[in-house]
């Protein structure tokens, strides 16, 4: 890969003294590439993507995001966070602000955008996720699927180069998963770099350029979705696939 936008180079991380959560991670993500990270719970996949926007700090190795090496420096962290949007499993919308205020908060306070302009851009993003008519409601008045679409729109308001998704559909009712996945698939068609932790194998098959399989803090396998699902390379990934596709 000539010019990766995200590059992990022998990255290690521990929780406390004993829990070695990321072990010698080497991973390159190209510009515009769409990656799905999967693996059993506790395998370190959330931690991996949370390192990309410094919600977690790694202790060893190098992590470069869009040409900036991650370091314990407020300026570096701020610069990276402006380029990286994130969507969480629990939505994490701000319940005391309306949907529109959730979206305009960062453009107004971080990018110093005039309020009017911020609101117009926010409405565009809400239309993009097909929820513009809810702009003046409070998050808790919306369904889970609607909340997650608002969360996606909020992350897009900063026009990020990279979008991180941390199990975006795991907290949703089955009926709502599709509306969120539809938005994500649409987004995937627009050239933004995406790193998704998800167990939605349908999504992986439909849009991912490659699938990264993790177990016990290591990257076990990385291949394109077709190969991963049809001819998994390791026994560990075969087991995992059998479990999640088995029913």
């Amino acid at each position: 890969m000539s010019d990766p936008i995200i590059s992990f180079d022998k990255v290690n991380k521990w929780y406390g003294n004993n829990f070695h959560v990321l072990r010698d991670i080497d991973l390159q993500v190209g510009r515009g590439e769409r990656i799905v990270v999967c693996g059993p719970s506790g395998s370190g996949k959330s931690t991996l993507i949370r390192c990309i926007n410094r919600l977690e700090e790694h202790q060893q190795g190098r992590l470069i995001v869009d040409g900036v090496e991650m370091a314990d420096d407020v300026k570096v962290v701020d610069a990276v966070r402006k380029k990286v949007g994130m969507v969480f499993q629990q939505f994490n919308l701000f319940p005391h602000l309306t949907v529109l205020e959730n979206l305009t908060l960062s453009p107004i306070w971080v990018n110093k955008m005039p309020k009017k302009e911020a609101q117009e851009k926010a409405m565009q993003q809400l239309e993009r996720v097909r929820i513009a008519e809810q702009a003046h409601k409070y998050p808790l008045q919306l369904s889970g699927g609607q909340q997650q679409r608002v969360a996606i729109a909020r992350a897009l308001c900063l026009t990020p180069k990279i979008m991180l998704f941390d199990e975006p559909t795991s907290a949703l009712d089955p009926e709502m998963i599709k509306e969120v996945l539809d938005v994500m698939i649409e987004l995937a068609g627009q050239g933004i770099t995406m790193v998704c932790v998800t167990h939605e194998m349908g999504f992986a098959k439909a849009v991912a350029d490659s699938v990264v399989f993790m177990d016990e803090g290591q990257i076990v396998e990385r291949s394109n979705p077709h190969d991963f699902f049809n001819t998994p390379q390791t026994e560990r990934s075969r087991d995992f696939l059998a479990k999640i596709l088995g029913h």
């Binding site: 926007n53 919600l55 701020d78 966070r81 402006k82 990286v84 949007g85 994130m86 969480f88 629990q90 994490n92 919308l93 701000f94 908060l105 960062s106 306070w109 971080v110 990018n111 969360a151 909020r154 992350a155 900063l158």
Partner: peptide
Amino acid sequence: PKGQIEAAATLGL
């Protein structure tokens, strides 16, 4: 919840 602070931090606040 910690998620509120994390979400705000990822938005660059």
